[in-house]
Amino acid sequence: MLRRPLKLMGLFLKVSVLNVAAYRFDMLVRVFVSLMHLVADLGSVWIIFHNTKSVAGWTAAHMMVLVGVFRIVAGGIRILIVPNMRRVLEDIMEGTLDFVLLRPVNAQFLVSIREVVVWRIVDIVLGAAVSAYGCYQLNGHVPIQSVFLFVLMLSAGFTIVYCFWLMLATLCFWFVRIQNIEMVFWNVFEAGRFPIQVYPNWLQWTLTYLIPLAFITTFPAMAGSGDPTKISPQIVLTAIFMAVLMFVLSSWFWRIGLKRYSGASA
């Protein structure tokens, strides 16, 4: 049952590689910029912990895990989510979504996998390396169960971001021009650079339940710290529940939006 979706994902990955191959130098520059971003992130952590031992219960090594997570998630968003959602917005505006709807494949699935910005995988590799190094500093090794929990929590977080984006893109069926919403997203996402524990209570609550940013960066980072007491089963279950709920909700919303779609030229 999963064979065909995987085959299609592989296919679009391949097409993206073909597209990228046309612009090699551009890619080198981008990889370099990506590396610089990571250095800047680590630099700010170093400056903070040069002055203090811990921030809201987070030590420098813990923070490194979080910096890594932030890179991984931001990378993931830029590999798949943002490019695909940008294209959906374009397609809805220009009426080219017709071609998606004509295909004998689930439309939501198809619009979510068409674009893959391959070189951004660099972000995931670098982020994973930094997280792993942080975990190693905390524990002296990288425990396998924490890797498992880390991947699980990251997947939940990533699903939540995806659903959030899908809902934003779906709004386009009603409002047509909403490209600027991407800026709003990145500005809010910036708050995920820091563990939510540094924020006042009301904001912590908001960032957990209203805008579930905590599930996207802080909780995966806690899971990846290698200390099982850091993350309760309750948080893990809530994360999974949130991911499933968001997925159901966003798919439903998408289908409602599709019904409204009328194409640019009728």
Binding site: D98, L101, L102, K259, Y261, S262, G263, A266
Partner: peptide, 9 residues
């Protein structure tokens, strides 16, 4: 045509 090809309700 769009209705017949399923693009429009």
């Amino acid at each position: 045509l769009k209705m017949l090809s399923g693009l429009l309700h």
